[in-house]
Design a protein around this nucleic acid. Structure first.
Length: 289
DNA sequence: CACGTCACCTGCGTGC
DNA sequence: TGCACGCAGGTGACGT
């Protein structure tokens, strides 16, 4: 499910309900959810830790604890929600962190991420149907995040940086944008959307991108991600409720439907085993390799 | 270094 | 109805 806007949305919604709470107990319901450390150490180390901050880096949800960083990657089907500890765990709940009761009442959240009744005996629940998601409890977050590329909203990410970086490689641009060590946070949806807005063909070779195209792409990436966040991310099927961005896709999942710019039918191709959607009229390419 | 393939998992929609 | 198949928002380990 989650790319940068979905994780950002989850972090923003959960933050007020988590700050200052103490983690009383961890229920590890699927051991391999823990990338590090093993369940025994995880349980003993996380017990009694206070949640000092809730943030995001790339597609990682991060909780800064008293002595550790807790990192959660939702991969394809993960979700985080706050539930009443009294409610029976669901089939796909993989990790449950029981929280200390609130000292002060957190603001009411009308969305379905947080059930009002849960606020008194709250648990943070990691639900993950496909079991791809992973959790790390480490002393230094850089152990996990060290190789990530820049954040799209950081100062480092400029049109000039993007142009230079694209020219330092000789790769198809779509798989390169999906590479988290190149740029952090884009996934299949937002990459297709950004390339369409920038009018760049997904198979274009990175070092052929012009300065103007790099500027357009830089703009498109920021604007598309911003719109995704503004619409609380994209929701699909039964996974991740509450987002609206799926109603505003220009190309993603729209094969055979008209391009919003020119009306040409959107095409779907495979690029590096990933479904790729683009407008063959707006996103032209003079050569492929 | 760039790219293809497979693996990790479950569940849903489609077509026979 | 049953069943096989293809598909899904991500990443990492291989081999060429």
């Amino acid at each position: 499910m989650p790319e940068l806007p979905e994780v950002e949305t989850i972090a923003r919604k959960l933050k007020p309900h988590l700050l200052g709470k103490m983690i009383m107990e961890a229920d590890v319901r699927w051991a391999r959810t823990l990338a590090f450390p093993n369940p025994r150490k995880f349980k003993s180390q996380i017990k009694g830790q206070e949640i000092k901050d809730v943030t995001r880096r790339a597609k990682f949800f991060i909780m800064q604890l008293s002595d550790y960083s807790l990192l959660i990657h939702l991969r394809m089907s993960g979700d985080l929600l706050i539930k009443d500890s009294k409610i029976k765990p669901e089939k796909h709940d993989r990790l449950i962190l029981k929280l200390q009761s609130a000292k002060s009442s957190a603001p009411e959240d009308p969305s379905n991420l947080v059930h009002a009744a849960a606020l008194r005996r709250a648990s943070l629940v990691f639900n993950d149907t496909r079991k791809f998601g992973r959790v790390w409890l480490v002393s230094d977050a850089a152990e996990v995040l060290g190789r990530l590329g820049p954040e799209p909203f950081s100062k480092k990410f400029t049109p000039k940086w993007l142009h230079t970086a694209l020219h330092s490689k000789h790769r198809q641009i779509k798989p390169l944008l999906l590479d988290q060590t190149f740029l952090a946070g884009l996934g299949n949806i937002y990459t297709d959307e950004s390339l369409n807005v920038a009018k760049v063909h997904p198979l274009m070779i990175s070092d052929a991108v012009t300065v103007k195209q790099a500027e357009a792409l830089h703009n498109a990436i920021r604007n598309v991600l911003k719109e995704g966040i503004r619409r609380n991310g994209a929701s699909f099927d039964w996974v991740y409720r509450g987002g609206e961005f799926q109603n505003y896709f220009r190309v993603y999942d729209r094969a055979g439907k008209p391009c919003p710019t020119c009306g040409t039918n959107i095409e779907r191709i495979l690029v590096g085993q990933r479904s790729t959607h683009f407008c063959p009229n707006c996103q032209t390419i003079s050569f492929v390799s």
